[in-house]
Design a protein around this nucleic acid. Structure first.
Length: 622
DNA sequence: AGTGGATGTCATTTC
DNA sequence: ACGAAATGACATCCA
């Protein structure tokens, strides 16, 4: 009873998690298309709804069309699992780890935009300003070490900047490789893949390619996170940035992050934010619950594979493998030698049917009474039989992420009771279930609550009883499991009445179908278990992505904070012609292509170039 | 007595 | 076209 409840919980839990994944509204668009070979594209783009692929015909069709592999092949499960997972990952989350971080940052990737964004566009007339004292890289190292400030201030278009090692080492030369490496680089999770930020450098204001080097240091992009089109942009980011606690709670981080994800121009509403926070909270709680179920080793080791989900869990029954249970209807888990139903075991006086004139002690009426209870071949045997031949279907790893399922004794050893027919032989005439075995192991009668007499006949299927009634000279196992040719030869070898022939064919049809139904159900369970593995793996992957996202956001906020400090420091050293400090609200720095730096007035527009030399000269004058 | 899982069977589809 | 396999649907048994 307990097992049944657990099975129910398992099924419900699986469905709930699958629904959660699809309905949580969190699509993790990792932009796999650009990183995957074309053949994978097709798999991703193809219809692959894992939860609806119960039409095994369709599954097989898809596979055989392209690869000529049969569903029964073990690799088929891997194939479909891979295909499903790719599809899932592709459509998982709105987080868009690849695109979302990448694109919006690209388009605003320049210091020029930064200052314009901070202080507004330059005006026509600019004041020629004195840069006091000379801003050197060394002087600013305190504030810019992480940001490589010297490069920012001294380099301009045409002078490729040397990205800080901490960031450039993450630049991806090979996008696909980088993608997976990134997934596996837990240790580098506190850094950003800046290379993703350097595509399509378009000046958001000018609509032209950004005049700044493509390999700008990462913080440039990050600093420009806010779209220039945001009219209500805070003139000075201090209060915005400073108020952001780099170690804010996850909710805060997510809220901030969701806000930051608006660079693509999509309007964000409070409801969206609330919804996102709610979803993320749910995910966080889910992650917690999931991770509680994982050992750290498993969690990390498995997560390191990223999309390379663990397919080592063979869903095929160790006992009745796919090959053995599917490829041959005449094979079984238990060999003929091992089978308790084999001829060798049948030694306690079970009468052969062929050639005997023994009248059946089972009347037709009895048959009608009992045929409701027993199947066509083998019938419904006591539960003890299942215990006698336990099929260790329980792959512990199968329940990764679902520890509560480990206690469920999934047992679809459908074919085990077929052991008696594992090796049908023409030379062996009808057999019956080993009564001695049944009697020996069935201390309790088949009908526990029934006072019905347990005769030998009750152990036979109704088809067996019918066959005995009609004196069919073949065993049902033989009828069912013989190959077609041999079965036809068998029928031709013995003259049979139409009634007998019809019964034999029905027995064969029902017996075949019973095995087919068993296999079908087993496959269905295998698919279900496979889906549970997929769900657990995807949840681990999602947890990993969210963790990396949080790290990236922390880094972003830290860099923003440092930039703010740097900006304040720079302006604290600037003086106008009258020696008065510049108001950062009124001026902005502009970096020219020739390496010069200008300080432009926000009010009067045009900036007057202040080259390094001029700055130095002015410094000397001072 | 009701319920859900396991199993057999039939009808139909698919290969 | 035929047979076998696959599978959905239903019935039955049983805990």
């Amino acid at each position: 009873m307990t097992m049944q409840y657990l099975k129910k919980y398992f099924t419900e839990g699986l469905i709930q998690m699958a629904i959660l994944l699809s309905l949580s509204g969190m699509r993790v668009d990792v932009g796999l298309e650009t990183y995957l070979p074309p053949s994978w594209h097709e798999m991703i783009l193809g219809p692959s709804s894992a939860l609806t692929q119960t039409q095994f015909h369709n599954l097989r069709n898809r596979l055989e069309d392209g690869n000529g592999v049969h569903l029964k092949n073990v690799d088929l499960d891997r194939f479909f699992t891979t295909q499903r997972l790719l599809g899932w990952v592709h459509s998982l989350d709105r987080l868009q780890v690849g695109k979302h971080v990448q694109r919006p940052l690209n388009k605003i990737l320049c210091v020029h935009f930064l200052f314009q964004g901070l202080f507004g566009p330059p005006r026509q007339s600019a004041l020629e300003l004195t840069l006091l004292p000379l801003i050197s890289s060394e002087e600013l190292d305190d504030h810019s070490s992480a940001l490589n400030t010297g490069d920012i201030l001294q380099n301009s278009q045409g002078n490729p900047l040397q990205s800080p090692p901490d960031h450039t080492d993450l630049l991806a030369e090979n996008p696909s490789r980088d993608f997976y490496l990134e997934l596996n680089a837990e240790d580098n999770s506190n850094t950003l893949n800046i290379n993703l930020l350097t595509e399509d450098l378009i000046d958001p204001m000018e609509g032209s390619p950004c005049p700044y080097p493509e390999n700008l240091p990462s913080f440039d992009a990050i600093l420009c996170l806010h779209d220039s089109t945001t009219s209500s942009f805070t003139p000075f980011p201090e209060q915005y940035v400073m108020n952001q606690d780099p170690l804010a709670s996850p909710s805060d981080v997510f809220l901030f992050d969701e806000d930051a994800e608006e660079e693509d121009g999509l309007p964000s509403t409070i409801n969206d934010l609330i919804e996102n926070v709610t979803i993320l909270d749910e995910i966080r709680s889910l992650n917690l619950s999931l991770e509680e179920g994982f050992s750290p080793e498993m969690n990390e080791a498995d997560s390191d594979s990223g999309l390379s989900l663990d397919f080592s869990h063979s869903h095929a029954s160790p006992c009745a493998s796919e090959a053995s249970s599917y490829s041959s209807s005449s094979s079984s888990c238990v060999s003929a030698e091992e089978s308790p139903f084999s001829e060798d075991v049948d030694e306690d006086g079970v009468e052969p049917l062929v050639g005997q004139d023994l009248e059946m002690d089972v009347t037709i009426k009895q048959e009608e009474d009992e045929e409701e209870e027993l199947g066509a071949v083998g019938g419904r045997y006591p539960e003890d039989f299942k215990q006698i031949f336990p099929c260790n279907y329980g792959d512990d790893t199968l329940f990764n992420g679902f520890p509560w399922l480990e206690h469920i004794g999934h047992d679809h050893t459908y074919n085990q009771r077929w052991s008696s027919s594992s090796s049908p032989s023409l030379g062996k005439m009808p057999t019956k279930p080993p009564k001695s075995f049944l009697r020996q192991d069935n201390a309790k009668p088949y009908h526990h609550s029934s006072s019905r007499h347990i005769s030998d006949a009750t152990m036979w299927s109704r088809d067996e009883r019918r066959a005995r009634a009609l004196k069919v000279p073949f065993s049902n196992e033989l009828i069912v499991n013989l190959p077609v040719e041999e079965f036809n030869d068998l029928l031709a070898s013995v003259p049979l009445s139409e009634e007998q022939l019809s019964l034999v064919r029905d027995i064969r049809r029902r017996g075949k179908n019973k095995i087919a139904a068993q296999n079908c159900r087993k496959r269905k369970m295998d698919v279900l278990f496979g889906l549970s593995d997929d769900v657990s793996s995807l949840m681990r992957y999602r947890s990993r992505l969210l963790r990396e996202k949080r790290e990236a956001l922390r880094n972003l906020q830290e860099m923003k904070r440092k930039l703010t400090m740097l900006y304040q420091d720079v302006f604290s050293r600037l003086r106008d012609e009258e020696g008065r400090p510049l108001n950062p609200m009124e001026y902005l720095l502009h970096f020219e292509a020739n390496g010069s730096v200008t300080v432009a007035s926000c009010k009067q527009g045009a900036a007057l170039p202040l080259t390094k030399s001029s700055k130095k000269q002015r410094d000397k004058k001072k």
